[in-house]
Design a binder for these strands. Structure first.
Length: 795
RNA sequence: GGGCAUGUAGCUCAGGUGGUAGAGCGUUUCGUUGACAUCGAAGAGGUCAGAGGUUCAAGUCCUCUCAUGCCCACCA
């Protein structure tokens, strides 16, 4: 056999990548009787310029399990999607082309978005396949595609029929920068340094009523003052009026137990929707409505001379004027958290507008979400808490309409006369109301023929929360479509539990009264070498393709086994280096084997009786069996990290460090029977090792399998071969290994002796005196002498 | 303010159901010419964050404290 001296990962990885694709090794078999293992993998966001080892880690980790399952004989369904619609893509395109939205047509803009998403999905595909992700590339989808549009529009119509979708005009979370409505899940926290301003209102008797606020720009939207009824200082004020400074109009003074007596002055200003507290009081007490903030984040008419100013500018001007007119008391520094839009970090506002919502926030529904969540098996279990906390903190229904361009259109038209919504006919899907005709000529309610299209698009999560029933549309077979729901596993990082996973639970519940997937495998984040969160700004990562080209995909994947389920993992060149060492070690072991089993004869192997196995053969086989058992148990629990530890330990410390040394004298010797037994054991054990490593390091294991084992085993690829079984030894031929363990201890002792005496491990000893450790010399004497090169053992 | 993690050798981390601390990397010494210097052997290195408790016995269980990370809420 011609085995190259060094393992060339570049050549090898390229070769097998192509082979797998050409030979369709990872293709899902339709209409097969085999049990299905289906994976609903996260469709990554379109902008591929931010790819880092966090992505590598989480996709690799999921993939270890997929490859393992494939070797367990499952018919693996592993499609890939690209989440290209929606705000993230729009912002990416805006930034990349430096777009001024007022100077570009909607059509041109969407075309740019489509173009970019195409480029990005190619970048992804290239990276994923160079990493060896065993996706069936003949089954892909994008969330802007007609298929995804059809599925998500159909689902929405279904929800409307089930009265889970409704339209309402109400104050809604709004991003003044993106100029669209948002959902609670689109928010994140941002710490901000600000000031609490003490501002004097005038009471009916002309006295000063001082309030404290961080948002003085909302003064013209003030609709009431609130006082805690137990607050003795102000008790007599309740029911009276107060005059707003600068704007000179009166507002009522009301009472609420929710007012914190100790905050500020104990008098609270309530405006037309500065925050959710304002909203509650507005609803509860039927307060006046003074809408101030416009959709573009500027102040409206009510602001008087401040009209048209940005919120920030208005704040400054108003403070100046308050100061000038003597309405401003002290100012205190404060650090507080603002809700900002996670895509652009702009503080959100409440703006009154008409939007579509999916019901999610009633106490009964919250119960339902948790009940569904509990039916899903979580890996690791404790991450269920994240869902629980999120569900418990839900305050509003899910607003799914977005005033944007690049997204899946809402399949709705309206009657101009009576505002009745008219939903598309399911047989017409997908539809784009702006281009397509409505399903009816006349409004079914009032008969008007004045019908206009909805122009809004859906929240991106409104489409991606359907992937669990979208992916099955990628197969033809009706029977398989049914078998593919729900998917067996969804692998994703923990930060999208509250969005992707949660929304999917909602959608599947409404649609099928079922869970969206059976198992949820949560990965952590890949962190920078510095232990910090990866960020493009900090530049604390190396582009993954550079790591792959320098160290190889197998080594990179090896690093990704370093963190347990749900745990974060630092980037570490040392760990990647260790992966590389493992590939080299596997290669070298193979080189040794292929020399030693060159005269390996399959017929002899078939005729082989394990009676001629000696103690060391028995020992390594038993160690292997226990490694297989442990690794399999861990893989079944998705604990790839633990599985890898067992495999590593067996390969390095049992197989190469010990067993290979034990067999050399037999391989070089002339006892044919013993030599064949050693060859047989080497062959069987090493093949099992390859298979154990195959899910983690698919390239090097494939290379070795193809050059040394395929001809004998017959599978087209190690990755569709069978997962190793225990090597079965007839009981009566099994040797008592307790005795052999004493031999192992003795060998350690002799090694220590040689080391302490500055002798090489291979140095020949005339005599070795047995002291504490005394194995049975009659049985093991010969073995010990040959392995440790000792002429005489005396006791 | 509430919650969830984490805190074990210089570094990165393993350590079911409590019983004399482990690995890899690093470091020191020695060795390696029939697979492998991408190697092997041996050694040094730990009051297992701290305090208290339960127990014959605690890294492992309980309570509290401290530090770090994340999530949720929040002062109008």
């Amino acid at each position: 056999m011609d085995i190259s001296k060094k393992y060339n990962f570049k050549e090898s990885e390229e070769k097998w990548r192509k082979y797998w694709e050409d030979e369709k090794i990872f293709a899902f078999e339709e209409n097969s009787e085999k049990q299905i293992f289906s994976v609903d993998t996260p469709p990554p966001y379109a902008s591929a310029d931010h790819l880092h080892h966090g992505h590598i880690m989480s996709y690799a980790q999921a993939e270890f399990i997929v490859r393992y399952k494939r070797m367990r004989g499952f018919n693996v369904f592993y499609p890939m999607g690209f989440d290209d619609n929606g705000l993230p893509t729009e912002r990416f395109v805006e930034k990349k082309y430096n777009i001024d939205k007022s100077k570009i047509s909607k059509k041109e803009f969407i075309e740019l978005c489509l173009k970019e998403t195409e480029i990005s999905s190619q970048t992804y595909k290239k990276l994923w396949s160079s990493l060896g992700v065993s996706v069936d590339w003949s089954r892909t989808y994008s969330t802007i595609s007609p298929l995804a549009t059809k599925v998500s529009q159909g689902s929405l119509i279904d929800l409307y029929k089930k009265k889970a979708l409704y339209q309402k005009e109400a104050p809604v979370l709004w991003c003044p920068s993106c100029q669209t409505a948002l959902a609670q899940a689109d928010l994140e926290d941002k710490e901000e340094e600000s000031k609490i301003n003490y501002i004097n209102f005038k009471g009916e008797d002309g006295s000063n009523l001082t309030i404290a606020t961080t948002r003085p720009e909302l003064l013209p939207a003030c609709v009431a003052l609130y006082i805690n009824p137990t607050d003795k200082r102000y008790k007599n004020l309740i029911g009276k009026m107060a005059k707003v400074p600068l704007f000179d109009y009166s507002v009522p003074i009301k009472s609420s137990e929710k007012v914190d007596v100790n905050f500020g002055t104990g008098i609270m200003m309530v405006c037309t929707w500065g925050d959710k507290e304002d909203l509650e009081k507005w609803q509860l007490d039927n307060l006046d409505t003074r809408p101030l903030i416009l959709e573009n984040g500027k102040l409206g008419e009510l602001a008087g001379k401040y009209q048209g100013l940005d919120l920030r500018d208005a704040r400054e001007k108003i403070i100046d004027d308050l100061k000038k007119d003597g309405f401003l008391g002290k100012q205190e520094d404060i650090t507080h958290f603002l809700n900002v839009h996670e895509r652009c970090s702009t503080p959100v506002e409440f703006v009154n507008s008409k939007q579509w919502f999916i019901k999610i926030s009633t106490p009964e529904l919250k119960e339902k979400w948790l009940e569904m969540g509990k039916k899903i098996k979580w890996y690791p279990e404790d991450k269920f808490k994240i869902l629980e906390m999120w569900v418990n903190s839900l305050k509003w229904d899910w607003c799914i309409s977005r005033q944007r361009y690049y997204g899946v259109p809402l399949p709705i038209w309206y009657c101009e006369e009576c505002s009745e919504p008219i939903f598309a006919d399911e047989k017409d899907l997908p539809v784009n109301p702006i281009k397509d005709k409505p399903p009816v000529d006349k409004c079914p309610k009032c008969g008007s023929n004045n019908i206009k299209p909805e122009e809004d698009v859906m929240d991106t999560w409104a489409t991606s929360s359907c992937t669990q029933f979208l992916i099955r549309e990628l197969v033809e077979s009706k029977k398989d479509k049914e078998r593919l729901y729900p998917p067996v596993v969804r692998p994703n990082a923990f930060e999208i539990i509250r969005t992707w996973d949660f929304y999917s639970i909602v959608r599947s519940f409404y649609q099928f009264n079922d869970i969206p997937f059976e198992n949820l495998m949560i990965s952590g984040w890949g962190l920078g070498q510095d232990g910090k969160k990866l960020s493009k700004r900090l530049k604390n990562y190396t582009p993954p393709e550079e790591v792959i080209s320098e160290y190889g995909a197998d080594s990179f994947r090896y690093w990704a086994t370093g963190a347990g389920l749900g745990q974060n993992l630092r980037f570490s060149l040392d760990e990647i280096q260790k992966g590389k060492k493992t590939t080299t070690k596997l290669w070298n072991a193979f080189k040794f084997l292929s020399m030693q089993i060159e005269d390996f004869d399959l017929n002899k192997v078939k005729a082989f009786k394990d009676a001629s196995l000696d103690y060391s053969d028995n020992w390594i086989i038993e160690e292997l069996n226990s490694t297989i058992r442990l690794a399999t148990t861990e893989f079944e629990k998705y604990e790839f990290a633990k599985a890898r530890n067992y495999i590593d330990d067996f390969f390095w410390s049992k197989f190469t460090d010990r067993y290979l040394e034990f067999v050399k004298y037999r391989l070089y010797g002339d006892d044919i029977e013993s030599k064949i037994a050693a060859q047989w054991t080497l062959y069987k054990v090493f093949l099992a090792i390859l298979k154990l490593f195959a899910p983690i390091m698919p390239f090097v294991t494939e290379e070795i399998y193809q050059s040394g084992f395929r001809d004998i085993e017959g599978y087209k690829s190690i990755h569709i071969s069978n997962w190793p079984d225990k090597l079965y030894l007839e009981n009566n031929q099994k040797k008592d290994l307790a005795e052999f363990n004493i031999v192992l201890d003795l060998i350690d002792e002799i090694k220590r002796y040689k080391s302490e005496n500055n002798l090489s491990i291979g140095a020949e000893l005339e005599n070795y005196q047995l002291e504490k450790i005394k194995p049975n010399i009659d049985v093991f004497g010969d073995f010990i002498k040959k392995v440790m090169r000792i002429k005489n053992l005396s006791s």
